[in-house]
């Protein structure tokens, strides 16, 4: 009975995973026939400074996204986990971005950030009147902000669920001991959220390697190549420059980085698993 599921999964997920490795040794423009290319694609891609720039941009997006999203998601999650009518309402509104497609979000922000008719005019503040997406030095940070706008709700939801599983008795005991809110946060909430932090961080870090839709619609990798992260570099190489072989090399790099990251993070988390229930 598992055959249909395995068949689907095999043909469109496992076979492509092997296929992408094979295609990295082939010269193909996506339309006509293929020819064997040996290691040529690999030499070209690994000798191209664009590859390292794309890799570096991806690393920046990954690290900065994590640094921005984790504290915001955690604090918001803790805040709306508490009971109360207006907090429930806040939750309803916070989750709105999760309903939107990346394409819709990117188009909305493109208009909003446009120097000619966006919100830069609304406040009459000099610092707001920037060409947010057209400036090489700003574009990457704007992209990271829009990514945060899209994904903070999901992680807030994870933290909210995590906080709700912390036994109330811990807080009651701390209250009796006279611990204030800040100490309760650092001595109870934070340690108890350990597994939520690992889950959320894993999804965030590994997921950040795959941001494509949003960045593609928002900047197409520009201005120049200022936001051409790895998946974008792969798409543009394969489907715009019609060099599927080189794009496959980039895809292999993408899979490799993702797997290494996922394995590293899961090792890190199992290493700490011994002390899960301390203090509970």
């Amino acid at each position: 009975m598992a055959v249909p599921a395995l068949l689907f999964f095999g043909v469109f997920a496992l076979v492509p995973l092997v296929g992408v490795v094979l295609l990295s040794f082939v010269s193909w423009d996506g339309i006509s026939g293929m020819s064997w290319a040996g290691l040529v694609n690999w030499f070209n891609v690994l000798g191209d400074s664009m590859t390292y720039q794309a890799l570096w941009l991806s690393v920046q997006v990954m690290v900065l996204s994590w640094l921005v999203q984790t504290p915001i998601s955690m604090l918001l999650g803790v805040f709306i986990a508490a009971r109360g009518r207006y907090r429930a309402l806040l939750g309803v509104l916070y989750f709105l971005p999760m309903l939107l497609s990346s394409a819709a979000i990117a188009i909305a922000f493109k208009a909003l950030l446009d120097p000619n008719f966006g919100m830069s005019l609304a406040f009459g503040i000099e610092a707001f009147a920037q060409d947010w997406l057209g400036d090489r030095d700003l574009a990457l940070y704007v992209v990271i902000f829009v990514i945060a706008w899209q994904f903070v709700p999901f992680h807030t939801l994870l933290y909210q669920a995590g906080v709700r599983q912390i036994p109330a008795s811990l807080y009651e005991a701390a209250e009796i001991d006279g611990a204030g809110r800040v100490r309760q946060f650092f001595h109870i909430t934070l340690p108890q959220l350990r597994y939520t932090i690992i889950t959320s961080s894993t999804l965030m870090l590994v997921g950040s390697l795959t941001y494509f839709d949003l960045v593609y619609v928002l900047t197409e990798g520009g201005p120049g190549n200022a936001t051409r992260i790895l998946p974008l570099d792969m798409y543009l190489t394969g489907f715009r420059a019609n060099n599927m072989g080189a794009a496959s090399v980039l895809a292999v790099l993408l899979v490799g980085t993702g797997l290494a990251l996922a394995l590293g993070l899961s090792r890190l988390s199992s290493f700490r698993r011994g002390s899960q229930l301390e203090g509970a």
């Binding site: 469109f12 496992l14 296929g19 992408v20 590994v206 998946p231 394969g238 599927m244 899979v255 797997l259």
Partner: peptide, 12 residues
Amino acid sequence: GLAIPLQATIIP
């Protein structure tokens, strides 16, 4: 299968 990134398989 959860770990396979969709983006990386678009060419095959």
